[in-house]
Amino acid sequence: MQRHRSGGHSAAFRFRTAGLALLAVHLLLVGWITLRPLDVPWVSAANLHPLAGIRADLALGWREGAKRIGEGLVLLAPLGVLLPLAGGRLHVSVWGSLVRTVAAGALISLGIELLQTGVPGQVVDIDSLLLNTVGVGLAHLAVTPALRAWLRRRSERLPLPVEESPQGRTPTITRVGIAP
Rank of each mutant, 00 (worst) to 15 (best):
L83P: 01
L85N: 01
L85H: 01
A86I: 03
H91L: 05
L110M: 13
L83Q: 01
G121P: 10
I108C: 04
V123S: 13
V123I: 15
T117W: 12
L83E: 00
L114K: 05
Q116G: 11
V74A: 15
S109I: 13
L76F: 14
D125G: 10
R68G: 05
K67F: 14
L114N: 02
V124A: 12
G80I: 02
E71R: 12
W95F: 14
S109T: 11
G96K: 03
V99I: 15
W95G: 11
S93D: 07
I108Y: 11
L115D: 07
L90K: 04
W95Q: 01
P120K: 11
T117E: 08
E113C: 06
G88H: 09
G88R: 06
G87E: 10
L115P: 11
L115G: 08
P84R: 02
I126Y: 09
R100V: 10
V74R: 13
V123Q: 06
G111R: 03
G105A: 04
A86P: 00
P120G: 08
G88I: 13
A104E: 04
A104N: 00
S93T: 13
V123D: 02
G87W: 12
G96W: 04
L79W: 02
L98A: 15
L90P: 02
L75C: 11
G80L: 04
A104P: 00
G105F: 04
V99H: 02
I108T: 09
V123C: 02
G118E: 10
I112F: 12
